[in-house]
C-alpha cells in the first residue's frame, strides 16, 4: 500500500496542488484521470521524488518511500527518450534489473533469464536484438513494460501507457497489468482516454489541481464528478448513451 499525505507541489511559486492525500491499494489497478494540466504527471513525479516538493510524506508499506525507490517500477511517457541511443531491445529490458543489483554488480545468468522471460511475456522475443529506434510505438511501450516486469517491484506506475499505440499492444499491456493485479501488486496508471475507464480500472482517482474524487471506479466515475473535473459538455456526451451501463 502506498500512502501520500499532505503533498504540496508548486512550480515557481504557484501551487499545482496543496496538501494532497491519497492511498493506493495493493491488488488493484488504479487509474488517475483529469484534464490537461490537472497535475497528473506532477503528482506521480512528486510521489517518486523526481521533483521538489514543498511538503508531504509518502510511505510504502508504512516506511518512507525515498528509502525503497527500487521497489517502485516507473514507466515514463515514451516521448522523453532518445531512441537513437545505441542499445538493443534486450539490453533495454535488462536495465530493469539494475535497481536490485546495486553498485558494482553486473547482470548475470539470472538477470538474463528474467529478461528473456519478460520479453516472451510481452511477445517481443523475436525483436530482442533490434535497436530500440526500429520498433513501433506499441512495441516500444511493451519493451518498457517488460523492463518493469524484470524490476520485480511491488508498485508499478505507468504514465499514459496507451497513448499512440496499436490495439494489440494495448491488450497485451493490459493483460500484464491484470497479472500484476493477481500477484497483489499496486498498479497506478495515469490515463487520458475516458472511454475505457470502467473497463480497465478497479479504483479511480479524478484530479484537477487536487483530488476531485477517489474510490472504486463505479463510485467515482459519475456524471457529477466528470462535470466537476472536466466540463459539463464532456460528461453529457460520455454519459448520454452509457447511463444504464454505469448505473
Amino acid at each position: 500500500m502506498i500512502k501520500v499525505r499532505d503533498m504540496t507541489v508548486a512550480y515557481s511559486g504557484s501551487p499545482i496542488f496543496t496538501n494532497l492525500s491519497i492511498t493506493f491499494e495493493p491488488g488493484k489497478i488504479t487509474g488517475i484521470i483529469g484534464p490537461n494540466g490537472a497535475g497528473k504527471s506532477t503528482m506521480i513525479k512528486g510521489l517518486l521524488g523526481l521533483i521538489h516538493k514543498q511538503g508531504g510524506e509518502i510511505t510504502l508499506h508504512d516506511k518512507p518511500v525515498s528509502k525503497q525507490l527500487k521497489n517502485i517500477a516507473y514507466v515514463e511517457q515514451r516521448a522523453a527518450l532518445d531512441l537513437t541511443f545505441p542499445i538493443n531491445v534486450f539490453d533495454t529490458v535488462m536495465t530493469g534489473t539494475y535497481p536490485n543489483l546495486g553498485l558494482f554488480n553486473i547482470p548475470g545468468t539470472k538477470e538474463k533469464e528474467a529478461t528473456s522471460q519478460a520479453l516472451a511475456d510481452v511477445n517481443l522475443s523475436e525483436f530482442s536484438q533490434r535497436q530500440i529506434g526500429e520498433l513501433s510505438g506499441g512495441q516500444l511501450q511493451r519493451v518498457f513494460v517488460a523492463r518493469a516486469i524484470v524490476q520485480k517491484a511491488d508498485v508499478i506506475i505507468l504514465d499514459e501507457p496507451f497513448v499512440g499505440i496499436d490495439m494489440k499492444s494495448e491488450a497485451e499491456i493490459m493483460s500484464i497489468l491484470k497479472r500484476w493485479q493477481a500477484e497483489g501488486k499496486t498498479i497506478i496508471v495515469v490515463h487520458h482516454d475516458l472511454n475505457k475507464v470502467t473497463k480497465y480500472f478497479d479504483n479511480l482517482v479524478i484530479i484537477n489541481r487536487g483530488i476531485v474524487a477517489s474510490g472504486t471506479t463505479t463510485e467515482v466515475f459519475t456524471k457529477e464528478n466528470i462535470t466537476k473535473a472536466f466540463s459539463g459538455d464532456l460528461s453529457t456526451i460520455l454519459f448520454s448513451d452509457k447511463e444504464p451501463e454505469n448505473a
Partner: peptide, 11 residues
C-alpha cells in the same frame, strides 16, 4: 546516459 529519469526514479 540513456534514461536519466528512470535512474533517478529508482534512487
Amino acid at each position: 546516459s540513456f534514461d536519466n529519469t528512470f535512474a533517478k526514479a529508482y534512487g
